[in-house]
Design a protein around this nucleic acid. Structure first.
Lengths: 198, 198
DNA sequence: ACCTGAACACCGTTCAAGT
DNA sequence: ACCTGAACACCGTTCAAGT
């Protein structure tokens, strides 16, 4: 079936976001690309922010799906975790404006985005729990360990996007490098704790 | 001496940023608060983005200064490092809009901001080097280790600001918690390497 | 239920003119 | 060198009206 106006608006907004960043997303241009008048969006969304929230929610849902697919792979726990982190990095670097939008400042509470984010977070926590039981991540609160991992990927990617990461220097600290470094140190920390116990 | 128009514009912009976020920063309102006409800013800045870049540069310089002050304290290396991370967190949570601005997407290259950021990064690298020599951080490329630390604070703070950090749950993963967790694991990792060597 | 055209208030930017 | 008032193009949002 042909996509409805609402979906056309969301897609057009996402395209404009990729092409020219958030400032390029005008309700008028979005409407034009969807083939409707410049105020038709108000029949589908409360305002511009509600449309952007729909784009963000869709994006977050997609990220959660790739995490879920990884879980079904049944590869080694640390590889699964590293793959999830890499998906996060690739997604953010490929669609920086979408990434910035998803984690941007929302003035109104966006229920749909919050639910999608919670769902993705739950899947990530599952991966972290598995890795903990396999002994490649330190034991301790799962949510907190998952938050530590998400903080590195998220921070590394955001710094890279704003040019505040020393990629040029001898350090060559790409987001992937930093994730690998953290995973390595966490595995060492987990191993040290095990040895102390046994 | 009385502050000149240029400085008044920068201060007014920063105030509006704190009060209502980036969207509240209008050249017209900034001008009004500075007591000049709505197009006077164009005699001091090329355009709106140039004014915002000046605000960002000033902010980044201030952050670098607090880092430098910490270095002069001569306290224990790990404490100095933790204090620097806490300054970063407190600054970002106190002035979220300024934080988002500094690490936002700049369409035009902003030389002033880039230099201030480079300066702050250099100071942080100094702190990291000292901590490495004290054995509380793993050895390895200084810049890369500094980048890992910055990625965690930055990511934790950005996630907290956008509500994607599980503060409510039992994990209670505040940015400060995550920084402490990272420093602890890195110290363990550093210690494990030392023991292996000796 | 969904869409349109006209209209309003607001904004960034430019320009001619003033001191 | 710095500032002003008028003007232009553009944008988000609202409203009355159409099917």
């Amino acid at each position: 079936m042909a996509p409805k106006t609402r979906d056309l608006l969301i897609s057009a907004a996402a395209d404009l976001l990729d092409q020219g960043g958030l400032e390029a997303v005008t309700l008028r241009e979005v409407s034009h690309r969807a083939g409707v008048s410049h105020n038709a969006p108000y029949k589908h969304f409360a305002d511009k922010e509600a449309l952007l929230a729909a784009v963000a929610a869709k994006e977050m849902t997609r990220l959660g799906s790739t995490f879920a697919a990884l879980e079904a792979d049944h590869s080694a726990p640390e590889d699964m975790l590293r793959s999830a982190m890499r998906e996060y990095v690739v997604w953010a670097l490929s669609y920086p404006a979408r990434f910035k939008l998803v984690f941007g400042t929302w003035t109104t509470g966006t229920e749909e985005l919050a639910m999608a984010a919670e769902s993705s977070r739950t899947i990530l926590i599952g991966l972290v729990g598995t890795a903990q039981r396999a002994g490649v991540l330190p034991s301790g609160d799962v949510e907190r360990t998952a938050a530590l991992l998400q903080a590195v990927v998220h921070g590394a990617v955001d710094l890279a996007l704003s040019g505040h990461l020393a990629i040029g220097g001898k350090g060559h600290a790409s987001p992937e490098d930093l994730v690998d470094d953290l995973l390595r140190h966490l595995r060492i920390s987990a191993t040290a704790a095990t040895h102390r116990k046994s």
